[in-house]
Design a protein around this nucleic acid. Structure first.
Lengths: 69, 69
DNA sequence: GCGCGATGTCAAGCGTGCGTTACATTTCGT
DNA sequence: ACGAAATGTAACGCACGCTTGACATCGCGC
């Protein structure tokens, strides 16, 4: 599933480590999600949207509508 | 994580089996999510929001804000 | 009373989300 | 040139999302 983590993180000048600490997960988890190696759990997706002040739909692309929009 | 699956399903008069088929998962998965035994994956959460024509935030309660609203 | 749809739950198995540890590479300040 | 920060990736272990198959209960029409 595509996501805008890298861009959102860059806008705030946060390292993967910074973001990981704000989320309460490991740096490797942030990296894996960012590089698309796996999708976050739903609770983690909520926390991610939270730290950026966005909705989940604004951070992650709906996989069933990847070509839309 | 709390969710409004049971209510949304009742509004449409769908059985758990009906919803499961629309989502492409087993009836047991729908039941487990509905009864709160576990949270759906993020891709499945997107599909669930889709079949109800809602946003993820309108179906699932943000666990870090459960008392809010 | 009987059968049937709907629901709840269990067990076993598989793939994956996330942790820890570790190592390599790149980039940057001094 | 050197050290440190940032990033990418790998191996291993554990917990969980989801499957199939099965069984029990409940409410309903007949």
């Amino acid at each position: 599933m595509k996501n805008r983590l890298r861009v959102l993180r860059a806008e705030r000048a946060w390292s993967q480590q910074d973001l990981a600490e704000r989320l309460g997960v490991s740096r490797q988890s942030v990296n894996a999600i960012e590089t698309g190696r796996y999708d976050p759990s739903l609770p983690l997706a909520f926390r991610i949207a939270d730290v950026f002040g966005l909705k989940i739909e604004d951070v992650f692309a709906n996989p069933s509508r990847e070509d839309a929009q």
